[in-house]
Design a protein around this nucleic acid. Sequence first.
DNA 1: CTTGTCATGTAAAAGGTTACATGATTAG
DNA 2: CTAATCATGTAACCTTTTACATGACAAG
Lengths: 194, 194
Amino acid sequence: VALRHAILSALSRGIPKNGYELNAVFNDNDERAWNASPSQVYSELTKMEKVGLIEVSDRTERRATSYAITEAGRAEIERWLTQDEPDHTIRDDVTMRLLTMWTLDDTTARHLIEAEITFQRRRERALRNKLQTFEQLAEDTRVWRNRRAVHILWLTQTTTTIAWLEGLIDVLENPESSVDDTLAAALSPHVLPA
Amino acid sequence: VALRHAILSALSRGIPKNGYELNAVFNDNDERAWNASPSQVYSELTKMEKVGLIEVSDRTERRATSYAITEAGRAEIERWLTQDEPDHTIRDDVTMRLLTMWTLDDTTARHLIEAEITFQRRRERALRNKLQTFEQLAEDTRVWRNRRAVHILWLTQTTTTIAWLEGLIDVLENPESSVDDTLAAALSPHVLPA
DNA sequence: CTTGTCATGTAAAAGGTTACATGATTAG
DNA sequence: CTAATCATGTAACCTTTTACATGACAAG
């Protein structure tokens, strides 16, 4: 059970959400926690209601069905976080591409890196925007302090990745230079040597 | 098709590998590119041989079946990297947990963070070791420069994550303080403000 | 001679994607 | 009135995990 916990997490703030709203979260590529397709979300919501982890809170507005987390749902979150071992496995298409790029010629590789820089810059802007909107919300501080902290991590990781990608272009352009030195120089405005 | 590209990537250096060796890569939680279970690897290898992306290179030693990448396999790598859009979706159990932690009391949350710090420190050591072994290998430089660069990214991300997790403990301990300032202080030895 | 590592697989179930279909509401 | 957005679902297919089974070889 996996998307299940992502949905419980999204509802854990207590604000009911419908399938469409949840899909907006799970199809957002800047959200670095979980992705899912719409059909999966709708069918998982139905199953979760059946077993009592969530309940229909509001069907009035339009025809949207909003769900709220139940006590059983909150108990399941706690069980998940405290009893289950964290799953550290990752499947990251982008990283796999970066690892395999040396099979291409320099020009093609460079194009791919530049496209990725463009994507990461867009993500960087999106994360900064989200952090700003958090400032305007005066909900339960506990929730928001936590969300804010995670977004700061995401932003830091993104900024570092951009610097690294720029360094990678330098590495390509200087085939004789030391990879370590070139990347250290590119990362230095962001990361000091450990 | 996804594991398929991870296998092609692993074989792209030209060194044949058997299922067991590939599984060692795909079950290594420090490898931040792709994970897969043994049974999936074996069945995917059979399928890939059938369509000619890989070929049996050596069945002699013990009864292990080693596979090598074919020309068609190399062509598929190039098609994948240049024609397919990168998939930026992520499913990360650990990040989801970090996002949901505020639902727990501070003591429990702290335990979870500390367990994660332990894990990340182990990964940090493992990555440093791998980088050292790279130095002793004098294979095709193009391959190793690329691998080295990716491992430097992984190491940087891991170091930053550890600093952030330590900052997160400070955030828990000082509920009145600014999340931004506390995390900036924790990250400052590693990351300068953008 | 037995425990651990190497090595491969099968079968069933769970998780996830894609293509398609449908219709209500809102903005221009 | 027409296009975009909101909103939900079904069916077929693909991907991945889990549980189980098997046996060779090496080291103590």
